[in-house]
């Protein structure tokens, strides 16, 4: 479970990127995080993972206060950042070993997960190559696999679907669904609204740092009193102001 209570963040004291955000992402559900460019999605996810400190407010992951017990919180999170261009000079396999060591994945699980996920994402062929030689989608996949290795209780993904080919994105959606089914928490940002519509149990919509909506898509339809697509409702909601 992810809990954000009255979280604020502004950059260099001027741009208010996240404005008094209170949001709960329950375990066992997939929650989509939607909003136009610059709405504050990445900023929020960065605060959840410890990359940015909020100016005020509190963040709890599975009941643990992030700023009190940062390491225990981070160990529970599987994070996929928006840019997969990291550790480019490591080979794929070296990166995976690095991640497994840092998240203390040992024993039989380690090798078994590396083999399973690299096979499923069709990355086994290139594990011996440097990440620098990977395509954008391949880089995303290696980062994704690295985040999967420790079987995280909480998933935080920043636009994980952009750049993936149809097969990989189908696979990722499968995994997300089955993980949520096992009681994990899944929170991801996306611009692909029909994916959100079909995949997510709930959506949170943010605009200019403020939360506009938080609930199921059915609830949103009730709110608009019409059987419209998520895309239409989204555009309408973020239109004014």
């Amino acid at each position: 479970m992810i809990e954000l209570v009255q979280v604020n963040k502004s950059y260099s004291g001027k741009v208010k990127a996240v404005d008094d955000l209170t949001l709960t992402v329950p375990a066992g559900e997939i929650v989509g995080f939607l909003g136009p460019n610059g709405a504050g999605k990445t900023t929020t996810l960065k605060m959840l993972t410890g990359i940015l400190n909020p100016d005020s407010g509190s963040i709890r992951i599975n009941g643990l206060e992030l700023h009190r017990e940062p390491i225990r919180v981070k160990e529970q999170i599987g994070f996929v950042p928006d840019s997969p261009d990291i550790f480019l000079r490591l080979k794929g396999i070296e990166y995976l070993r690095f991640m497994a060591d840092l998240y203390r994945v040992g024993g039989a699980e380690r090798r078994q997960r590396i083999e399973e996920y690299t096979a499923r994402f069709e990355m086994a062929e290139v594990l011996g190559n440097k990440i620098q030689s990977y395509s954008h989608g391949m880089r995303q996949k290696i980062v994704l696999i690295g985040a999967l290795l420790h079987d995280p209780a909480v998933w935080i993904l920043d636009e994980p679907l952009t750049g993936l080919d149809p097969k990989s994105s189908f696979l990722l959606k499968e995994i997300l669904r089955s993980e949520a089914g096992k009681g994990k928490t899944v929170f991801f940002s996306t611009h692909v609204l029909d994916v959100a519509e079909r995949l997510c149990d709930r959506v949170a919509i943010i605009h200019k740092g403020r939360l506009l909506f938080d609930g199921t898509i059915a609830a949103m339809r009730d709110h608009f009193k019409a059987d419209e697509s998520l895309e239409k409702m989204f555009l309408e909601m973020t239109e004014d102001e």
Binding site: G106, R110, E115, A124, E125, V126, N129
Partner: peptide, 16 residues
């Protein structure tokens, strides 16, 4: 493209 051989894979399984 270079996949790993069995020895390298076993190596990857060792934790540190």
């Amino acid at each position: 493209h270079r996949a790993l051989n069995a020895a390298e894979m076993a190596e990857a399984g060792r934790s540190g």
